[in-house]
Design a protein around this nucleic acid. Structure first.
Lengths: 141, 141
DNA sequence: CTTGATCCTCTAGTCGCTAGAGCATGTAGG
DNA sequence: CCTACATGCTCTAGCGACTAGAGGATCAAG
């Protein structure tokens, strides 16, 4: 029925831009689809499913290489889930690190905003806060 | 006394790689330093301070363009701190958004890891979750 | 004086797309 | 049937923020 979908439709259905879909094919995340007589890509439901998987994984911050690994694993359903787990776990560690950094950043910027309400830049803590240990860029003042 | 430092020393003192320092010069974050007779870059304390500022800001997730704005403001200390404040505030919003996304992501991935401990890939939650049928960051809970 | 570290400039590569040129098809209206 | 115009194709180049390497000059130590 809705087999043999052209790339634009796939793009609309998955929310992935057309050139990006072709890019995923190029880098091997998505198998090369069948072509019509006039050489146009023709996708089936499985391809759309795979693209949704890719999109979701990308949204969750997985790098293309990690997605490639996950897809390879899911293409071989006999392998242990432990492999998948390793990938997810290392990703988790990355996420924790990012959150920690951002939380530190947040409090610093918050402090900037709180303290920087008045006066001129010369006295403004924003610059100082981002310098090293309160050292100021304008040393001479 | 320790004026006129070569680029390698600056690199060690700031933790920024040599080519990156040159890159910052190229894109206008760092003014072109003085040169020695043999055409080598020769940095003073202010340059090092500025690089520390840049590094810190980058680590905190500021984009180069935002750093350029902050540096421009700090180079003209007569301007109102309100300008700096606007930049900082807009970053605060960005940061909050990033933290929110990552926190949601974290629990999602954590759940994957927790539930995906056993069995084969065919039954693995990680794969399911990343497909479109499993819980999605935007749909359920 | 020689060795090896450091410096210079320049070009090209990375990742994950994104945009455009220039051309070939597909589809809908008149 | 013809004309628009949307959509598809391939190919190349660009983005940000670096990073790596070639090929050469210069420095500091032994």
């Amino acid at each position: 029925m809705d087999r043999a979908v052209p790339i634009g439709t796939v793009s609309r259905q998955t929310g992935i831009k057309v050139p990006t879909i072709r890019y995923y094919e190029e880098v091997g995340l998505l198998p090369s689809p069948a072509r019509t007589d006039s050489n146009r890509r023709s996708y089936d439901a499985a391809a759309i499913q795979r693209l949704r998987f890719i999109r979701h994984a990308r949204e969750l911050g997985f790098e293309v290489e990690a997605i490639r690994q996950l897809l390879t694993l899911s293409d071989q359903p006999d392998r242990s889930c432990a492999d998948v787990d390793v990938i997810a776990r290392s990703h988790l560690a990355e996420i924790d690190e990012k959150i920690a950094k951002l939380t530190a950043l947040r409090s610093e910027v918050q402090r900037m905003v709180d303290e920087g309400e008045h006066g001129r830049v010369a006295e403004c803590r924003v610059i100082e806060v981002l310098g090293d240990h309160g050292a100021c860029l304008h040393e001479r003042h």
